[in-house]
Design a protein around this nucleic acid. Structure first.
Lengths: 196, 196, 196, 196
DNA sequence: AATGAATGAGAATTCATTCAT
DNA sequence: AATGAATGAATTCTCATTCAT
C-alpha cells in the first residue's frame, strides 16, 4: 500500500461524483451499474477506475461530501453561546438547503445506503452524523435551560426535526406560493411551536 | 369454485414474506438474493417459485400488506365527522404502531424500494398511499375549519408528520422511560403544538 | 457458513475436474478461463458454480487428488521395516505411474500453481508433500543404516530423485523400445547406482 | 549507422528485466501485471512501453538471456574432443550456477511459461534448449564410446540430469555444510555413479 | 523519459429464473 | 412441495496497450 494520497478533486472525479449522485438517487446504489455511470459521463466503465478504486469509493465520496456540507456551516454553533432560536433556525436552514439544493441528488442515501460501505468508511459517515447530532442536542439543551423550549428529550426531538427535513427531498418541489425559503420558515415555526 | 384463486396465505408463503421482510430491511431489496431468502426459510431457491412468481411479487406482497395495515384501521375516519384531535391521534398511533410493530421489518421500504415494482404494482401501493394521504388531509382540513388548528397547508403538514413517524424505525428503540406509547404521545403533542 | 459438507464426487464434478486438469496443464491455471472449462464440459460457465464454489476450488481438488494418489499407496512403507531397495523401487514406480498415468494432466502443477491456492488449501497440499518426503527420507535412512546405500544427505537425495520423476511429464513419451516400465527401471537403476 | 537497432540494454531496460524476472518467478507470468512491474521499477506502466514493445517481449528477453548464459559457456565443448568426465562436470556446474545464481529469479520459467511466447520467439528459446541438449548428448555419447559410462540412452539420461538441476531452484538453499559448490559436486557424483 | 487518460477485451462471479423429476 | 441442474444476462473489476502531452 503506497501512501494513500487523498486524490485531488480533478475534473473527471467531480463529474463522476455528480453523475453518480443523480443515478444513485434515481435508481439506488445497487441498481446503478458502473456502465450507467460511465454512459452518463461520456466514457467507458474502465476509465472510472482511473479516478475511483471502486464503486463503493464513489458512494463514500458522495456521502462524505454531503455530510460535510451539512455539518461544516453549523459546526461553530456548538461552542458559541448564542441565541438558541436563531441557532435552531440556522441548523434547519442549512440542512434543508443542502437536502433540496441544486444537486438534487443524494439524500435518503444516508438513510439507506450506508450498509454498502465498508466498516471503516461507514464510521467516517457515522462520525459526521454524530457531530450533527451533538450540535443539535446542544442547541436544544441550551434552549431548554434558558426556558425558551419546554422540557423535552433532546435526542428524540432532534430526530423528529431531522426526519422532517430529510424526507422533504421525497415530496417537496418548490412552487410560487411555497419556495424553499418558505418551507424552511414553515418547518422552523412548526418545530418551534412543537417546542413551546 | 373459482379457477384463479388469489394464492392463499399458506404457511410457506407467510414464512417467505416474513423472512424477506427482514432481509429487505437489513440489506435492501436488490442486495437480497433469492438464495438468501431460501436459506433463511430452510429450503432451496427453486422452491420459492412454488409460492411466488418472482422476487418482485414478494416485495409487492410485503408492501401491500403493510400499507393495508396502516390504512385499514383509519379508513373509516374520512367519512366520519368526529373530533379532528382524536382522529389525528389515531392516525399517528396506528402508523407508529405498524412502523415499530412486532414485525420490526419493512419500513422505509416504501420510501425507497417502490422503483423495483412494475408500474401496475407500483400503482397499487401508491393508491394506498394516496388513500392514507387523503385521510390525513381531511382530518387536518376539518381541524382547521373548526378552528382547532392554525391555517396551514395540509399536504405539507401531513408530509412532515408522516416523515417523523416513518423514520422512527431508524432510530427509536423502546426504553423504560420512553415506551412506544410514550413516543406516540410525544409525537402527537409535538404535532399538535406545531399546529396551534 | 453452513457445515461444509465434502461434496460427493458426482458425475459432473468429476467431469469438470478431468477437463480442467488437461486445460490447466496445457495452458496454465491463470490462462484457463471458466469459459474454457465449461466449453470442454459442454455447458455454460455459470453451471460450474453448481459444483465448485470457485476456480480455485477446482485447482485444489485436482492437486489434492493427485497428491493423495501418490502418497496413499506408499504411506504404509514408513512404518514397515522392509527391504529399502524394494521400497525405493515402489516409491519411484508409484510416483512415475501417476505422473505419466492415463490422466496425462496436472503434474508440474504442483511445482508452480500452488501460489494460486489460499493459505489453508496450500497447507493441505504441502502437508501431503511433506508426508511424501517423510516416507522417502525414512526409506533412504534405513538403506544407509543397513549399508545398502552410501552415506548421503537424505533430503537432498530425495529431492534429486523426485525431480527426475516430476519432470518426466515434460519430455517423456512411451515408445516401443522404452515403455513406462522401462523408464521406471531405468530411473531406479540410475538412482540405485547413484547411491552406491 | 543502422536504422533498426536492437535496443541497447539501457539502464531502464535492465531494471525492468530484473524486476520482472523476480515477479514472474514469484507470481507467474500471467499473474504479474505491467502495473506490478512498473511499481517495482518506480514508474508508471505506460513508461515500460518506451523500452519494451509488450509484456511478452520482456518474458522473451529474460528467457533468452538466461538460456544464453547457460549455453554460451559450454558451447565450445561440442567441437572439442576433451575428457567427457570433465565436460560433464562443467555442464552441470554451469547450469547449477545459473539456476541458483545471484539473480535467483527465473528458472522453471523455461519449463512452464514458453506457451506465452509467440511461435517465432518460442522457437528461439527452443533452439537454445536444443543446443544445450546437443552438447549434453555429445558429451554422453563420447563418454560411452570411450567406455567411461555404461551404455545408456543419452536423451533420457540428459533429461534426468537436467531435471535434477532445474528443480534445485525450488528446494535448495545454501548452508554452511552444503554450499552451491558442494551441491554441484554431489549432483556430479550422483550422476557419475548412475552412469557407471 | 515519463505520465494521465482512455479503451476494448475479457475475467470470475452472481443471480433470478426455468424445468424435469 | 421440493430440488438439482442448467442458463442468459448482467456486474464489477483487471489489464495490456495506446496516445497526446
Amino acid at each position: 500500500m503506497p501512501d494513500v494520497v487523498v486524490k485531488e478533486n480533478g475534473k473527471q472525479r467531480t463529474l463522476i461524483m455528480q453523475k453518480s449522485q443523480v443515478l444513485f438517487w434515481e435508481k439506488g446504489y445497487a441498481e446503478t451499474s458502473m456502465k450507467d455511470i460511465a454512459n452518463e459521463c461520456g466514457f467507458r466503465p474502465a476509465n472510472i477506475y482511473n479516478f475511483f478504486e471502486s464503486k463503493e469509493e464513489i458512494l463514500f465520496s458522495i456521502l462524505k461530501e454531503e455530510m460535510e456540507e451539512i455539518v461544516n456551516p453549523i459546526r461553530y454553533l456548538e461552542k458559541e453561546d448564542g441565541d438558541p432560536l436563531q441557532q435552531l433556525r440556522l441548523l434547519i436552514e442549512t440542512h434543508v438547503k443542502i437536502t433540496l439544493g441544486e444537486k438534487r441528488a443524494s439524500k435518503l442515501l444516508f438513510d439507506t445506503e450506508l450498509r454498502n460501505l465498508s466498516p471503516e468508511r461507514r464510521k467516517v459517515i457515522l462520525d459526521l452524523r454524530d457531530e450533527y447530532n451533538c450540535i443539535g442536542y446542544t442547541i436544544l439543551k441550551r434552549g431548554i435551560e434558558k426556558g425558551l423550549f419546554r422540557k423535552v428529550d433532546e435526542k428524540i426531538t432532534l430526530n423528529l426535526i431531522a426526519s422532517m427535513i430529510v424526507r422533504t427531498r421525497l415530496w417537496f418541489s418548490p412552487e410560487e406560493w411555497m419556495t424553499i425559503d418558505d418551507l424552511i420558515e414553515f418547518i422552523f415555526q412548526f418545530a418551534l411551536k412543537g417546542l413551546s
